[in-house]
Design a protein around this nucleic acid. Structure first.
Lengths: 195, 195
DNA sequence: GAAGTACTATACCGATCGGTACGAAACGAG
DNA sequence: CTCGTTTCGTACCGATCGGTATAGTACTTC
């Protein structure tokens, strides 16, 4: 039994091209013809390798989180709550205003409001946002337990506040805001941090 | 010369139905069939009354800003910079979490990332966001001139910070966050305000 | 080399997209 | 009642949507 004709493209590399398109145009704004053109493969190859448009998007989202959108994971490793907050905001700014990459955050702008057909995708990215918020809250709870935050700190509210700022920064970045301007915003946002 | 057959629907009322759909589904996620179904009119009636999909969206956006999205205009009238900031955030929360209305902000979620066809719409809402930011900055400059803000206050950064928070709150609201939770976020955001 | 297998490109599918032609219907003016 | 005008519903337009059938091609194994 032979092993078949080898794939003529790199699956992960093509995934990066698809990421770029979904990131820039959103889920509903991206047609299969946009994807195949950017990925340099034919439609049947796309379906064979990734399933369908929705499945491809989910794979793209996973790859985004392992790559340019991985600033949360990075930030959670910081030693103090304050450092976590700083890393999160600075990482978000870096990711949403990187040179040669689409502006903004895939998780925010790819499927924030959609028609009925894309509702599963909308719920998927929403679930991811919620999970990220919960992960940050848990990290802040640990920080509180370690005496790194005041005993009466509202970790849920702080996590929500930080993510609210990240989302806002992402919208600003999508609108073309300059990186230095966003860094000033992050400074202001952090100046409210409990010490 | 006669006056012709009278229109069988109310133009503004139908516009409100269209607003609801664009607000919930975004520009690209909304099909003409969604619009005509919600507005209770036929396709040619829509084109005769509003132009085309893009022109209808622009009319919808104007109506949004005169209605549920009019919290900026309201906030700018507040007597002090601090009151303007409070009004802006509380107004945004009210608008993005109103009962019986779509969650989130039309200006944020209707065309944040789009395909090429919807690029004019994306630029249009982006231009509106920028104008709103400029209007707030001018209001804060006046406040500074009136001694309402410290002489060295960075009004541009403060305006950007406030709008960043509004955008973030809008994303949170679109994701289903509870109003009370967002009010806690707004409190935190305002605690950094210069006095 | 033959057989079996997995990928490739072309060409196509029904459905839906945004937009419109057309004739009937409902009005005011004469 | 007729005419000019405007809106109405139906039925349609070409283009594009997401997704697939089919047949050929490139590879490994025997």
């Amino acid at each position: 039994m032979g092993a078949g004709r080898p794939r003529a493209f790199d699956v992960d590399e093509a995934l990066d091209r698809a990421l770029e398109v979904f990131w820039r145009q959103g889920y509903e704004g991206t047609a299969l013809s946009d994807l195949t053109a950017a990925m340099g493969i034919s439609r049947p190859s796309l379906y064979a390798a990734y399933g369908n448009k929705e499945a491809l998007f989910r794979k793209v989202l996973d790859r985004y989180l392992d790559g340019p959108g991985g600033y949360l994971r990075q930030a959670l490793l910081a030693p103090t709550a304050r450092a976590v907050a700083e890393e999160l905001l600075r990482g978000a700014i870096r990711a949403t205003t990187a040179e040669g990459r689409p502006r903004g955050c895939l998780v925010v702008q790819s499927a924030l409001a959609t028609g009925e057909d894309a509702a599963p995708v909308r719920r998927h990215v929403r679930a991811h946002r919620r999970a990220s918020q919960a992960a940050l809250r848990e990290r802040l709870e640990r920080a509180r337990a370690e005496g790194d935050l005041p005993p009466d700190a509202d970790t849920a509210a702080l996590a929500r506040y930080l993510w609210t700022t990240v989302y806002g920064l992402s919208v600003q970045a999508a609108g073309g805001a300059a990186r230095e301007d966003l860094e000033r915003v992050a400074e202001l946002a952090l100046s409210t941090w409990p010490s």
